[in-house]
């Protein structure tokens, strides 16, 4: 693929801190390589801003290979941008046209307050995990041998697919209700599908759902937006499984 260079217009949400009001600011950025990732384009913008003695745009990022879940960004009205099954750091500028105007906004959710510019606080996810997203096994050299309990490959694979969630919050950001059901459903499913997780399944789903509600996330109305925008393609099946687990736990 031959490298091309494009000029773009950016409309970026700027907000000084959690307490301030924010607004969209417009920037022009020239000579952006189409081989650059979206975040490298933002690096270029920041370099330009720093050279102009302006404050660079704050955004979350870390691994830049689509696995840490740190990057976010609502780009042109979609979580992680127009491409599917990728995170913002894997989005490349070849997706955009010369002269295009690109809107960049932070995740919007009551449970994800903006910290600065495009950076939001996703610690609500951590608290949901702390409420029950684990198997209660202490560290010891004496657990049973890893192969002592065979696990049906189908279940193990489904469990892995659910566990592939990177906790980025795109599901919440793209859901019109700001619901975290895909995130929680994936975690509940990962354990519910494995014999190790079944022992605490009831308490887990009740505790995690309670915490999810306390955090101020909306409710699922099955629009399916989360599944489409999830960079890891986590299936809605996991929400159904959580509902099932929740009903089971509530009536037993």
């Amino acid at each position: 693929m031959a490298t091309k260079y494009i000029n773009i217009n950016l409309k970026v949400w700027r907000q000084k801190d959690a307490k301030s009001k924010g607004q969209m600011e417009t920037y022009k950025l020239n000579q952006v390589s189409t081989d650059s990732s979206f975040l490298e384009m933002l690096d270029q913008l920041n370099e330009q801003l720093i050279n102009e003695r302006k404050e660079p745009v704050a955004f979350d990022h870390d691994c830049r290979e689509g696995i840490c879940g740190m990057c976010s960004l609502y780009i042109n009205g979609r979580a992680h941008g127009p491409d599917t099954l990728i995170t913002t750091c894997q989005l490349h500028m070849r997706t955009f046209k010369d002269g295009e105007t690109i809107y960049i906004e932070p995740w919007r959710s009551k449970a994800f307050p903006v910290i600065k510019d495009l950076v939001v606080d996703r610690s609500a996810f951590d608290r949901i995990q702390q409420a029950g997203g684990f198997v209660s096994v202490n560290t010891s050299g004496n657990t049973i041998d890893a192969n002592a309990t065979p696990i049906n490959k189908h279940d193990a694979d489904r469990s892995f697919e659910a566990a592939a969630c990177i906790g980025c919050g795109a599901c919440v950001a793209s859901c019109k209700n700001g619901s975290a059901m895909l995130f929680v459903g994936a975690k509940v499913s990962q354990y519910a599908l494995l014999p190790q997780g079944k022992i605490e399944a009831h308490d887990r789903v009740l505790a995690m759902v309670r915490q999810m509600d306390e955090e101020g996330f909306g409710n699922c109305t099955n629009t399916g937006a989360c599944e489409i925008e999830c960079p890891k393609g986590i299936s809605l099946e996991n929400i159904a499984r959580m509902n099932r687990e929740y009903l089971k736990a509530s009536f037993s």
């Binding site: 009205g77 127009p82 009551k110 700001g178 619901s179 399916g224």
Partner: peptide, 30 residues
């Protein structure tokens, strides 16, 4: 009640939102 709670879950909306890319209009307007 659901609608009320769900609206409250996003106090600040998006300036640009391309919801039709990921969901059907009927599902968003129940």
């Amino acid at each position: 009640l659901l609608t009320y709670r769900n609206v409250k879950a996003r106090p600040v909306g998006y300036v640009k939102n391309n919801a039709s890319a990921n969901s059907k209009i009927s599902s968003r307007n129940m």
